[in-house]
Design a protein around this nucleic acid. Sequence first.
DNA 1: GAGCCACTCTAAACCGGTTTAGAGTGAGCG
DNA 2: CGCTCACTCTAAACCGGTTTAGAGTGGCTC
Lengths: 347, 347
Amino acid sequence: MDQKITIDDVAKEAGVSKGLVSLALNDRPGVSAEAKGRILRVADQLGWRPDPRARGLSTRRAYALGLIVRRSPHVIEVDPFFAAFIAGAEAVLAERGQVLVLSVVPDVDSELDAYRRLSSERRVDGFFVTDLLDDDHRVRALTGLGKPAVVLGRPDDAAGMPVISRDYSAGISKLVGHLAELGHRRIAHVTGNTAMQHARIRLERFLAECRAWGLESVVEQADFSPEQGAAATRRLLDDPNRPTAVIYGNDPMAIAGMAVAHERGLSLPGDLSIAGMDGSDMGEWVYPTLTSLGNAPSQWGRAAAETLLRLIEEGTAPDVELPGADLIRRASTAAPAGTAHHNTKER
Amino acid sequence: MDQKITIDDVAKEAGVSKGLVSLALNDRPGVSAEAKGRILRVADQLGWRPDPRARGLSTRRAYALGLIVRRSPHVIEVDPFFAAFIAGAEAVLAERGQVLVLSVVPDVDSELDAYRRLSSERRVDGFFVTDLLDDDHRVRALTGLGKPAVVLGRPDDAAGMPVISRDYSAGISKLVGHLAELGHRRIAHVTGNTAMQHARIRLERFLAECRAWGLESVVEQADFSPEQGAAATRRLLDDPNRPTAVIYGNDPMAIAGMAVAHERGLSLPGDLSIAGMDGSDMGEWVYPTLTSLGNAPSQWGRAAAETLLRLIEEGTAPDVELPGADLIRRASTAAPAGTAHHNTKER
DNA sequence: GAGCCACTCTAAACCGGTTTAGAGTGAGCG
DNA sequence: CGCTCACTCTAAACCGGTTTAGAGTGGCTC
């Protein structure tokens, strides 16, 4: 088996000491070009890869990055974001010899336990932190643990951690404009948990745009779960003066909202326009197909991985602003019944 | 910081050699009850956790398990299975001091690379293998790498790897029976990729049940993606003699199928009954709510993690058969239009 | 020709655990 | 009383790397 090749084998084969092999491998000064070439050639030829455990023992690194995802115990929400995020991160990690340690936990306590465990066992060199809350307990916990971390979203207080963010302003602006141009005058927004920064920012931007277009706005609080998305939609539809369009904070809530509208016998998008915000693929496969904002989670993954590695290696890394989210126009938004083409109910 | 507690600190504090601490910690014989108690107490009090790197260097273990998920590069499918699966596995891993290393890759080549890398860098002690194909390249690759692995699903040839499976027979039987009792006479099945074992088994069971109930059956091939689920549904609905009910190999395909039916102006479930097979939460939030078979992915996670750890530690582990999948009756299945309550048969 | 420096390289200590040979100790036995 | 044996425990080697003190070499200067 090739399982047992060690640095000593390489050293012997190249006729040098193992110390020199280490220096050569890590691009340290003090190795002649000739020796370095030979060592690397031998290493490659033997198929040797340094064991990260042994390496980490000296360097105090784990060569691994941690992602802890919290999902409520009963409803494991369908979140299209993470698979793509991880795939994006993976592309960076693989070529840098790193690995992703993932934990999915049911509640806040287990989440903190997971951070502590991964940290005290020196399993990872840093963390990705998603879904940041205001005054997030995790920020405190992480600064306490002294582990590098990058934050996804734009919190008020990231406590010095680099932030990866995407500008939704332009997208939300386009989305509200799109609805206004279709003739909508009263638009609702079903927010995610507004303790989360990105949910609040989206809300603020929504309100600003409605003002700019002179539209009436309605806001319903939810928490990004389809369950609450459905409940918020019921409240909206119960209102005699109900909005003609609803923008949801993410796609799962939008899909659940569509189901509620169908259930009430509304025809979509004639009686009600609906839009999401994650640009998830699932939006292609519901009826009607879901208008949304593009999000490209794999971009988040790449950027977050690069930033976190830089932070770990250099002690500091700049924030990253991803390209603005763009409007994906699909079939769930149209002129409200009564306006425009006098859209005659069902065909 | 508590970062720097080492076995030597514990040994010193307890007044013994570090070797003895190690023996005590690992429940090895030759440690007096008195010393053992004192050592464990001191360790606990100091909050010491052995460093898995150092440990692994001697024991040749990584104390980590690998899961590699392949998703097509463009369409990152929405798969509710994995989050719950991982959460289930996590519960076992956490209490056994293990960690989950996850990789999401776009294609087969990267997938094999990932297995090789995790293995040659000794990053993991074993793998979870999902979505097994007939004559799967991964089985060969893994046996070549000599890493323990457990397989999810029931392949013909698992090459000696333990298999975790769930019996769908009873569930499919109930589902077909449910449709038959409602008065359906012609039922379709949209399969997943039948190169995958579990897809084939479901198909066979479906056909057997239709025969048993004297129903006509139609089969359309798809691959578990919503895209192909939609295409298969179009083909079915194009047929003048179209079925009155469709059973899909998983929930995403079923949801896509519902969208196609809506798009054609069919009323669900009156004009067409639809059922999925994953029992995913999303089925609760579409319209109409989706009849499905319960799957409880977290059970898969627990069982797979326990089996894999046992395999690693003892060199062998028995197969596990999870409780049979049960029918989840929701709103997407009903008597076909025209039959109404003609529904007699037996129950 | 001695002294100095820059450049390569080696040897050995070290990271934090596990494992094993063997040292001490006291009890049981003839 | 001397021997054997079981039981605890310690010391040191070891896992596979990294890091550093310092040894060797050759070229240059004065």
